[in-house]
């Protein structure tokens, strides 16, 4: 199935957020996730469905 991660399509075999993190080599400790506009509480896993839109966000330098 396909999900949209930060506006890019991503093919997925396992259907949950933590598997996606593994695929993308993302440490769940350092990101915040929005699924279809809803914030997923930090470190929580969640089910993913075909076509879900995810925003994976982190802190960067800024003024």
């Amino acid at each position: 199935m396909k999900v949209i991660v930060n506006e890019k399509e991503h093919q997925l075999t396992e259907k949950d957020l933590h598997s996606l993190f593994k695929d993308l080599k993302i440490n769940p400790e350092v990101v915040v996730v929005e699924k279809n506009g809803e914030i997923i509480p930090r470190k929580n896993n969640c089910e993913l469905k075909d076509g879900d839109r995810l925003e994976i966000i982190k802190f960067v330098g800024g003024g």
């Binding site: 991660v5 993308l24 350092v30 915040v32 994976i56 966000i57 982190k58 800024g62 003024g63």
Partner: peptide
Amino acid sequence: TVALRRVDLDNPNDQI
């Protein structure tokens, strides 16, 4: 202060 941005999927774990 810090800002929030999309994770760069090519360099995901650079962490301020």
